[in-house]
Design a protein around this nucleic acid. Structure first.
Lengths: 260, 260
DNA sequence: TTAATAGTGTCTCTGAGACACTATCGT
DNA sequence: ACGATAGTGTCTCAGAGACACTATTAA
């Protein structure tokens, strides 16, 4: 192809280019407030942040030192921002094979004092038990989980307040408008467990009222009963287990009736 | 703040950085197949592409010359990708103040033969009449509208086939799951005009059947009747006009009943 | 009068929502 | 037996969908 000719004359230095390309990850998890026997769980949505060290790995003063920030880092040449987010998450928290999704780009000039730096924001959903092994690394002096309702009161690095606000909005929407709630739950779950997850983002009576929700879960097209299988982990009365049907198409049209 | 110290020692050249940062825009419009008097419109969704010139503006052979591509270009330092998309659209098509939305980032290594080039994809909705003034500029030898069902058979530049496929999926979803359909319609419209827009992306009987849809439009919470106002542009019988209610919150939860 | 679009009348069926009631089991 | 969670029985009401019917007007 004639691209070869064109490429020979192309000067990659002709345009001024960004000074950095990064990925940030808003890691969400749901903590059970209490885990008593025979009780349905009470849950609370949390986000994981790191505290930026005072010095970087080479002992020099760090940018935005001492502030709380989203985990993340520079994208390596040869990888995509998404792959970078997966890698950072694996390196910084030891978590792999979880639900990770891109949700926005942050490139407002001046957002990072180091220069023209573009960040790709992702959200991740990590079941509570997978975060057991979390640990601070070079660049972070602390790692901590914050309830989403408090997190915006912290002293946050860069424009991470904005990114975190967006991430919270996105996950609240996604929990209700898609089946990602399943990423917070075991393979098979009771209606009260799903209910507890959804109640972290809504107060709607159709979900909050036990009788209503116990009935509704049986009519949802993307959830099926696990025939004849029950558990006693949430109640003395054995409780029916359900599972999400994978790969079912969810129809969200605002012009259609709910049921397909 | 102590960031100043840290910045003095920060070397912006430490990391290998991208070779380019661009915006691409998938411009959608809806063409009325026929515009007879007293007829509801028959509509077809189209996307605007440019044909890349054989030479660039300085007379040298162009990359991906002769192929069809999305309009777009390099992001200038000091602007965001979104602003760049607005600017490109204004410069290349003379269109301004229209619905423009970011929907994805394309950064797979090797997607652009010129190097490590990151593209932000946007979609735009342009009413048919605003595209009257469109014209080819330096970098484009032709500008043309293609029906979305044919566009993927063209010889497309870079990874634009993938971007265009994603853009079509996104706009089909958005048309049904949000109120962007209004961007294709006049301020006040008849039920058959809205119906024609929606029929470009779905065949569902609830929308396709006149009687069903004429009734449904009156129950949609985000649409209101324009009291006592009628038009005869689509039928001999004067037809009720409707308008979208702005800033109404659309509840798309898959766990809730449709009506709020 | 006809042809075309824009509706309405009426029926059936599903399911939402509310509230009272029953079921199960560990303690 | 009790207390707590997990349901079910039953009623009412709204609205979806189907199909036949009526309404309005230009030509």
């Amino acid at each position: 192809m004639s691209n070869e000719q064109a490429l020979k004359q192309y000067d990659v230095k002709k345009y001024r280019t960004p000074d950095g390309y990064t990925s940030d990850i808003a890691v969400f998890t749901i903590l059970s407030a209490k885990t008593e026997a025979f009780k349905p769980p009470a849950m609370d949505l949390h986000i994981m942040l790191i505290k930026r060290s005072m010095q970087d790995s080479e002992g020099r003063p760090n940018i935005e030192a001492g502030k709380w920030a989203l985990p993340g880092g520079f994208v390596d040449p040869g990888e995509t921002a998404f792959q970078s987010a997966q890698r950072e998450l694996r390196e910084e928290t030891g978590v792999d094979h979880i639900h990770l999704e891109h949700f926005g780009v942050y490139d407002t000039p001046g957002r990072d004092p180091r220069g023209w730096i573009i960040s790709n924001a992702h959200y991740a959903i990590v079941p509570e038990h997978q975060l057991a092994s979390r640990a601070a690394n070079d660049d972070a002096s602390e790692v901590e989980l914050f309830p989403v309702k408090d997190v915006l009161n912290l002293d946050l690095a860069f424009d991470h307040a904005r990114i975190i606000r967006d991430a919270i909005d996105v996950i609240k929407q996604k929990l209700l408008e898609s089946t990602v709630a399943k990423e917070f739950l075991p393979e098979e779950f009771t209606y009260s467990e799903l209910q507890a997850v959804l109640l972290t983002v809504t107060n709607d009576s159709a979900i909050a009222l036990d009788a209503a929700f116990a009935r509704k879960i049986k009519t949802l097209p993307f959830i099926q009963e696990v025939e004849g299988k029950k558990t006693s982990r949430t109640s003395k009365k054995p409780t029916q287990l359900y599972r999400f049907i994978v790969d079912i198409e969810v129809n969200n049209s605002i012009y259609h009736a709910k049921k397909v």
